[in-house]
Design a protein around this nucleic acid. Sequence first.
DNA 1: CATGAATGAGACTTCATTCAT
DNA 2: TATGAATGAAGTCTCATTCAT
Lengths: 199, 199, 199, 199
Amino acid sequence: MAREAATERRRQILDAAVKVFARQGFHSTRVADIADEADVAYGLVYHYFSSKENVLNELFTQRWKLLLEAIDETDRTESTPQQKLGVVAGFIIDSYRYDPDLMKVIIVEVTRAANSFGRTHLDQINAAYKGIAKIVADGQKDGTFRNDIDADFASMTFYGAIEQLLSGWIFGLIPGSERDFDEAQELLVRAMCEGLDKR
Amino acid sequence: MAREAATERRRQILDAAVKVFARQGFHSTRVADIADEADVAYGLVYHYFSSKENVLNELFTQRWKLLLEAIDETDRTESTPQQKLGVVAGFIIDSYRYDPDLMKVIIVEVTRAANSFGRTHLDQINAAYKGIAKIVADGQKDGTFRNDIDADFASMTFYGAIEQLLSGWIFGLIPGSERDFDEAQELLVRAMCEGLDKR
Amino acid sequence: MAREAATERRRQILDAAVKVFARQGFHSTRVADIADEADVAYGLVYHYFSSKENVLNELFTQRWKLLLEAIDETDRTESTPQQKLGVVAGFIIDSYRYDPDLMKVIIVEVTRAANSFGRTHLDQINAAYKGIAKIVADGQKDGTFRNDIDADFASMTFYGAIEQLLSGWIFGLIPGSERDFDEAQELLVRAMCEGLDKR
Amino acid sequence: MAREAATERRRQILDAAVKVFARQGFHSTRVADIADEADVAYGLVYHYFSSKENVLNELFTQRWKLLLEAIDETDRTESTPQQKLGVVAGFIIDSYRYDPDLMKVIIVEVTRAANSFGRTHLDQINAAYKGIAKIVADGQKDGTFRNDIDADFASMTFYGAIEQLLSGWIFGLIPGSERDFDEAQELLVRAMCEGLDKR
DNA sequence: CATGAATGAGACTTCATTCAT
DNA sequence: TATGAATGAAGTCTCATTCAT
């Protein structure tokens, strides 16, 4: 009971952190902002987290773990490489669809921040790239994918395309309706696998 | 003469700023760090720039202008759409090749920072996406590219792939030798236009 | 019965406080440290003591009362002034011998802290000096001690010498073996009464 | 000129720090108090000192160096051991006489604070004890002082007596008029060398 | 009695910016 | 132009104390 209450409090603070980080960016949000948003006392944030940075770390780690699992899981299925890439893209896009703030924070503050936080989680981030690369490499081995494009290279390309899509939605540069989210996954895989050229 | 000296001083400070921004990130570099690196007095930075942020702005604007020009220029040539995309990719990759610190700063601190600075330069950033989208759209019109993938969508995808490549080099996640830079452009265009699928 | 249990708890907390105060100093120990060391819940400290400062106060008062009693008691005996001073020195030295942490805390945090706590207990502290001064004064009256050195002055001198000795042991600046403790009392009285000069 | 101004500023801040440390104790004084007392801006304290603790360190080190030099100097003269001890006592007493606040701070916050700061300067503090011990030891060798009292022991005793005297003045427990200061040195040496016993 | 979550004032330190020289 | 001292707002983190259970 007490345990559960504590867990709830953590959640409450984490959720608030997502909102304010998304709104103002990590550097511009003061711990007081998180506390205010969570409607708890200032000090309580430090009761549950050792530092502001640590709040961000937990946010990232929790979500990224799910992505790594999703990649791993789909990789172990019997699907075609294209289908697997579709699952990965779908997972990321859905992550954004159902919690855009969280994905915004993760991308803007962690994944794309080469300095500071990015470095801390580099291994985890890279694990995702490697997971995608494995899917590509397997596709190359079984003759589905061409061999003249390095799997790691292709993986970066693929992941970069997805992230940029999210960026476009985040920035409001490309339309991001429910319908767009629905289409995006398929469109993305098609673009990457079949190419832009007309056949 | 005096003018030139002044211009030189600005350059000296800008160059130093690139180095320290790349090394520590914008938020972690103090104005003193820039001055130290430039080997000028603390206050001189404020003699030439109105604020720390303004140094970054100038860094970004100068470089991004060249990219916009390059996109615009290639778009006005008679090349094929694929060649045009190649020129764009090449320009960005070469930018990194010849001044990795500057590109790192631009990407990490501006282009990918949805909050803070990103917002300020959103129009300029979007102009590049639009420029690329135009190349794609023209390719669709003349029958070079398929029509079932939205040009804006394709543009984001294409640009995201390039930026992720740079990120990979910046983070040290994928090899970044001279040879890799040489190949990257061609490989990238091929991957995006022809797709990963084996034919 | 319940009373005893409560008393035990208090003791448990006081003993823990002595340890951590001795180890980290009063200002650097958090209430949580005391609770941890005592192996009791955080809030329990406040159940038994009204504040952190109060814990220290009680520690000091309990011990200092014994010293005052010891001085008073020996003063009422028929011993020579020298013997009385020996008893006082012996009491303090033994206090350190059998509970070095407690004496360390008392000296470092109370007795020698002119600001904060020192002020609070000034009267009690001074009572000890006065008690020693009385022994000296009586010795002067009965012709045992010389008259040209003010009794209060001599008292300060005598007490200061003892405390510095303890400081030396606390700091590890002079050897503090069992044998040293044994000798210290006698040596101290001899030095103070007979002087350093060779006769 | 600029250099001198800077040195003056440091002095100004140090002097202010002495006042407030003496008044409120180190732990109870906020950096703002120092700045206010010095009549400078908050941040200037950090322009000249890396931390509040560092201000205290400098205060101590500057003064203690003089003491060590005084001990060393008198030790190299042809005076009798008693005279040498008199010079040492005189130096410390005069230090208090002419700058009671500084000596109060040094004694209360450094010399007698076994934890925290005391530890940092232990070597320097001990050097003084050793310097006094050398004077005693030399006196024992040349037959001036008795041999049955260890020189280190005697040194602690002597220094402790002086410091306790200052403490008495600081606390207001013993009278501290100009006349008392004048007498104190002689009285102290007499008490320590000749002893309290009537002959 | 006992627990430990919750509160929030407070202090240190940083650093962008200004300004006198 | 050039210097770097001076300013002070802002933000992180700590921790004594309170309080609900």
